[in-house]
């Protein structure tokens, strides 16, 4: 069955917006890994919190959407910094496995606190006309938020790369991620640098979370689990520790998921499995990820 061109564009639009969301979340994993060699398993839950913060700011506090979003982004960034402070910093000099267990614990804690505080029943995100209208290009129709998502992602990426590569804070981040002790010898405030990294990663997760709930307008306290896992995979596929790699991995994963379901609708039920299959293939063929460099580990 030949696919209509319009269907192709329709799916392409879907793939672009899903890929962008994955990319935003994957950046948070990759930045934290880059700087601390830690997989922040609670990152998906931070993503969930971002969405809930925006939800409550709009519904409970009756804020206009743009103020609500700003508040949610700020709160989530602060939350991410607090998470590092409480769950990871005390274990900075402990074995990696302890920090990892702490991350898994933090993830469960946030999810279950979410159930207790927000309630387990899904909530629907309020409609915001600017993001909620259907835009038609001939036979292709997309939700306006799907057009905003890639733009927001691109702008975020440009700003982020500027911060990392052109600013003093970015230089400190790159130094800390290469050699913690040598960075200390440069009079760099390592704790502050790690905090900023968590702040930026959580900010981007919140941005992803808010746009995610506008695209799939339902919130529940476990909504971060699957995107969290997939974006971790996206970061690994791209080469964990590498920002451009995380973005590439996010887009590959998003595109693959949408296009395979479009081409082979009978496999729709296995949609979530593709990410894991892709992960296994990449790890077998290019263990350091697509843009990652193989690192010699000193034993």
């Amino acid at each position: 069955m030949p696919m209509e061109l319009s269907t192709f564009f329709q799916q392409l639009a879907n793939a672009m917006s899903l890929g962008s969301l994955y990319a935003l979340i994957a950046i948070g994993y990759t930045m934290v890994y880059g700087i601390l060699r830690l997989i922040n398993f609670a990152h998906g839950d931070v993503f969930m919190l971002g969405a809930y913060f925006a939800f409550y700011a709009i519904t409970l506090l009756a804020m206009p959407w743009w103020i609500a979003f700003a508040v949610a982004l700020g709160l989530t960034a602060v939350f991410g910094m607090g998470l590092e402070r409480m769950a990871y910093r005390p274990l900075r000099d402990s074995p990696k496995i302890s920090v990892m267990i702490s991350a898994i614990g933090a993830s469960f804690l946030i999810q279950n606190l979410g159930v207790v505080i927000f309630g387990g029943r899904p909530k629907s995100f309020p409609s915001i006309p600017l993001f909620d209208t259907v835009v038609r290009f001939g036979p292709v129709s997309v939700l306006s938020v799907s057009l905003f998502i890639p733009v927001v992602t691109l702008v975020s990426l440009i700003v982020l790369l500027y911060i990392v590569n052109q600013t003093k804070t970015g230089l400190a981040m790159r130094a800390v991620s290469t050699d913690l002790d040598a960075a200390r010898l440069m009079a760099i405030d390592v704790n502050r640098t790690v905090s900023i990294t968590f702040g930026i990663g959580s900010f981007l997760a919140a941005l992803g979370g808010i746009m995610w709930t506008m695209k799939y307008p339902q919130l529940n306290p476990l909504m971060g689990v699957m995107p969290g896992l997939k974006c971790f995979i996206a970061a690994v596929i791209g080469g964990i520790g590498n920002i451009q790699g995380a973005v590439l991995g996010g887009f590959i994963l998003g595109a693959l998921e949408i296009l395979i379901v479009a081409f082979l609708p009978e496999l729709t039920g296995y949609r979530d499995a593709f990410a894991f299959v892709l992960l296994i293939v990449v790890l077998l063929v290019k263990p350091a990820g697509l843009l990652g460099k193989a690192q010699a580990v000193k034993v």
Partner: peptide, 13 residues
């Protein structure tokens, strides 16, 4: 990092 960036790190504070 480049030689230049390494030197900048020396003057970081």
């Amino acid at each position: 990092l480049t030689v230049d960036e390494n030197l900048s790190l020396g003057a970081f504070s």
